[in-house]
Computed example of a mutant assay.
Amino acid sequence: MKIANKMLIGTLLSLVSAVSVSAVSETTTSPNINAGEQLFRTAGGYGCIACHGLYANGAGNVGGNIRGKTLDDINHSLANEPTMQLLSSALSNMDRLNLAVYLEALGKISLVEWTIEDKATSSTITIESDTPAQLVIFNKLFEPVELTLPQLTPEQTVQLNPYETKAVDWIPSKGVYTLNYNQSQLTIEIK
């Protein structure tokens, strides 16, 4: 899966549109998606993940989904949101630009979320074919979960510990995929 993630990040780098660099002097280096991802996970000692989830999808946390947010969005939040103001002085202009490149790249990936829990759930989502997609799976059970997802990943299985979140990145082909685990069902319609 690490190879697939690196390939997806490489694809994302080619998809990322130009980001406004007005807040960064022209003598700085280019924005870096990997640096943005690292900052997302560690900024301020606890990372953006504390409020926005491991994959910036909100994950039911207080900060919500911030995939696709821009440098202007980040700067506005750092200036105006009380919790975000705590990070403002910790992030340089380049840090902010790196975060923006990372979040904008995530915004170009079709997000599919699946929560596996102890009650019956069924949901359907429609996404486009032939564009990067990310399935974010949250195991809300008090037991490990082992999933086989042959339509999405060549890996044999995806294992999640209790209350763990993992992502599977793939390029979907047209069709309908139905994923099941006990009482939890997710249907992905790919147009």
Rank of each mutant, 00 (worst) to 15 (best):
G44M: 10
P154F: 08
Q185C: 02
E128Y: 02
A18C: 01
P82K: 05
N34F: 11
V158S: 10
V24M: 06
C48E: 00
V62C: 00
N98I: 03
P144N: 13
T126A: 14
V16K: 04
Q159F: 09
L39S: 10
T70L: 09
S184H: 03
Q151D: 15
E26A: 12
D118T: 08
Q85R: 15
G53D: 01
C51S: 09
P150R: 06
S129T: 10
L97M: 13
R41A: 14
L152P: 00
G10L: 12
L78W: 09
L13K: 15
N61S: 07
E143I: 08
Q185M: 13
V24L: 13
P144S: 15
T42M: 02
L179Q: 11
T165V: 14
N5K: 11
N75A: 08
K69F: 11
L15P: 00
G47F: 01
S22F: 04
G175W: 06
L15S: 11
V168H: 07
M94S: 12
L54K: 13
W170M: 12
Q185H: 05
Y46G: 12
T28H: 11
P132R: 05
C51D: 05
T27M: 05
A105N: 04
P132H: 08
E37G: 01
L54G: 01
G175H: 09
S89K: 13
N32G: 05
A100N: 06
V145R: 08
N93Y: 02
V101F: 11
L147W: 01
E155K: 12
L71W: 01
E37Y: 06
L106T: 02
N98F: 05
I188N: 02
Y102W: 15
G47D: 07
Q183T: 13
L86T: 13
P144C: 07
E117A: 10
V16I: 11
E26I: 03
Q159R: 15
S110Q: 15
I109K: 05
P162C: 10
L87K: 03
D169C: 04
S173K: 15
D130E: 15
G107S: 10
E113I: 02
A18G: 07
V16P: 00
A56P: 00
I74H: 04
K191A: 08
I188F: 07
G36I: 01
V24A: 10
Y102A: 10
L147S: 01
R96L: 03
S17E: 14
Y46V: 14
I9S: 09
S129H: 14
L78M: 11
E117G: 13
L13F: 01
Q151S: 15
S20H: 05
I49R: 11
F142L: 11
Y102C: 03
L39E: 07
I9Y: 05
A50I: 09
M94A: 08
L135V: 06
V21S: 13
T124E: 15
A90M: 14
L39V: 07
T148W: 01
G63K: 05
A133Y: 01
A56H: 03
D72P: 00
I137P: 00
A35M: 04
A43I: 10
K174L: 03
A105W: 02
P31S: 12
G47P: 04
I116K: 06
G36N: 06
A100C: 10
L78P: 05
L13T: 11
Q38H: 12
L15E: 11
T131A: 12
T70K: 11
I188E: 03
S22W: 03
A43F: 02
